[in-house]
Design a protein around this nucleic acid. Structure first.
Length: 508
RNA sequence: GGGCCUUUAGCUCAAUGGUUAGAGCAGGGGACUCAUAAUCCCUUGGUUCCGGGUUCGAAUCCCGGAGGGCCUACCA
């Protein structure tokens, strides 16, 4: 079986992680965990992008070496993964030897094949910003904006990759493989980009301008410029792991789909004779309180602070529940509280607690065996079968928001079942028939809770483990038979109480 | 300028061209007490952005328009 290999974009370490970074990690993690539960062999990669001009500048501004600078920032991203309970198998940094070696190999190979050539490039250059300027950045009167300082027209030599010669191949591939770019409507955007002739891609910077990069193997006076450095991480991380490449999914933000991931990357690989990824999944962006996220205006969410305050699963749940994958979404504390209170705390959390309580009170803390089964049990089981059958395909299509809604409908049905059986009334009866139904109802609610929470495994893994734990249960590593209604809780002894999602006034 | 996406209840979202457009939350009413003042039941709420067209039948397909977002041009 082909390994299910999934990646996030690597984050540029010129600043601290924010909500967007956190979302992409969580989304990818949910997919990875879901595939593992489905029985796939999963390999999950994330990492950091650590070269380039901005980092060189930031390091210089602080008077430290670039390596020291990135060594200080990269751990923040690793720490974020830990705190978000991201189940990545590897974390690659583009400053690692294993990465640089592969980048050089690919570049040398393409150079030897004549796919990379040297050419002169003429353009307007801002010394202050240390960058070439685009014609469109110019003012109406032809002058350049103040921030660029002195702008001069210069000629510079650089290396170029023959992108254009693969244009038709890529167009054909995208048209023949509708799964290649997801959501599908994004493929139109890529094809539109490809409807104009591609320019060859400048892949180097002279060392006088940019030192902080990977030197070209065939010309030490130049370093690699972004594309071959950053994109190659997906490949370099697994080049020595047989059976992992090609990637099944690259999960990225919609902003870096066109052109890097959908155009440069497949062409780079194809030119090297390497298989290209199966699929690229482009997600949307978060706004905050209806406005664009921005550090300068203070309109941003610090993911780790949020986790400290509200808990990792509260954040994971909200991000996945609220966002329709591919679309943009808004993050507001009000909406967060709606999800937290009504879904996590009241519907699910309270179900856990009342189940424990009743099992303690009416069955000496041990999940009883199922007695006589009536219409109520049959009906609840039918809801389960329906939920189970609907949720898996929804998750497979990344419709997590809809899937979660269905799961919570089942949780509600379980709460309703409990009302219908009213074990607290049965507990007062000495009639053996009532006692038998009591046993059945306690066993049924526990089993429903085990199953319903199991479906939440990929999204809120820590919480699900706690729920299973207080039910005296240890879940299997896949859903193969985990999701089958049964009696595996019979005889398990349960905990006294468990508050999973405390209400705000009761939080410490 | 060209292109893409989007618009469904107060809010967040569903609905292979097919009964009377559905859920959750919020609002209103009731029930219950095992439970985190929770839970359960009932209920109010719609010109599916607007205007045409195709069709036996349109939220869905076509044309035109409006609002919002985005790509075309480095940044989750």
């Amino acid at each position: 079986m082909k390994t299910f290999y999934i990646t996030t974009a690597i984050d540029y370490v010129n600043g601290s992680p924010h909500l967007g970074h956190a979302y992409e990690k969580v989304l990818t993690d949910v997919i990875a965990r879901f595939r593992r539960m489905m029985g796939d062999e999963v390999y999950f990669l994330t990492g950091t992008d650590e070269h380039g001009q901005k980092i060189q500048q930031s390091a210089r501004a602080r008077g430290v070496a670039p390596q020291a600078f990135v060594d200080a920032i990269a751990p923040q991203f690793q720490e974020m993964c830990n705190r978000l309970e991201i189940s990545n198998d590897d974390f690659i940094r583009t400053t690692e030897e294993r990465h640089k070696r592969v980048v050089c190999e690919l570049l040398q190979q393409l150079f030897d094949k004549g796919e990379i050539y040297k050419a002169e490039y003429q353009g307007y250059y801002s010394t202050r910003q240390e960058q070439f300027l685009q014609g469109k950045g110019r003012n109406e009167d032809g002058s350049w904006p103040e921030i660029y300082g002195e702008v001069t027209e210069i000629t510079e030599s650089n290396y170029f990759f023959k992108l254009a010669s693969y244009q038709q191949w890529l167009i054909d591939h995208i048209k023949a493989n509708p799964e290649f770019i997801l959501p599908r409507y994004r493929a139109k955007q890529v094809l539109e980009f490809l409807s104009e002739p591609l320019n060859d891609l400048c892949i180097s910077r002279p060392k006088e301008r940019l030192e902080w990069g990977i030197p070209l193997p065939f010309d030490p006076d130049f370093v690699t410029y972004v594309w071959f450095d950053a994109l190659t991480n997906y490949y370099s991380a697994v080049v020595d792991k047989p059976g992992v490449w090609p990637a099944s999914f690259h999960v990225i933000g919609k902003d870096i789909l066109v052109p890097p991931h959908a155009v440069y990357w497949p062409i780079m690989l194809h030119a090297c004779g390497i298989a290209i990824p199966q699929s690229i999944l482009a997600h949307g962006w978060w706004s905050i309180n209806g406005a664009k996220m921005s550090k300068s205006t203070g309109n941003f969410v610090e993911p780790l602070e949020f986790v400290d305050t509200y808990g990792v699963d509260a954040l994971r749940y909200f991000l996945i529940r609220e966002m329709s994958v591919g679309q943009d979404s808004d993050f507001s504390l009000d909406q967060f509280w709606v999800r937290y209170n009504s879904e996590l705390a009241n519907n699910l959390g309270n179900l856990v607690n009342r189940t424990l309580n009743m099992t303690n009170r009416f069955a000496a803390s041990t999940v009883p065996g199922v007695g006589p089964v009536g219409d109520a049990e049959t009906a609840l089981k039918a809801v389960w079968e329906k939920t189970h059958a609907e949720v898996i395909p929804l998750f497979e299509e990344f419709q997590f928001n809809v899937g979660l809604e269905r799961i919570f409908a089942f949780i509600t049905a379980t709460n309703a079942y409990i009302e219908q059986r009213a074990p607290w009334k049965l507990g007062k009866s000495t009639d053996p028939a009532d006692q038998a139904i009591l046993q059945t109802s306690l066993a049924t609610m526990a089993e429903a809770l085990r199953l319903g929470s199991s479906l939440l495994q990929a999204v809120i893994p820590g919480t699900v483990q706690k729920i299973h734990g207080v039910l005296g249960y240890t879940a299997g590593s896949t859903w193969m038979d985990e999701l089958v209604w049964g009696d595996r809780l019979t005889g398990k002894s349960v905990e006294k109480t468990c508050i999973l999602f405390p209400r705000p006034d009761k939080k410490v």
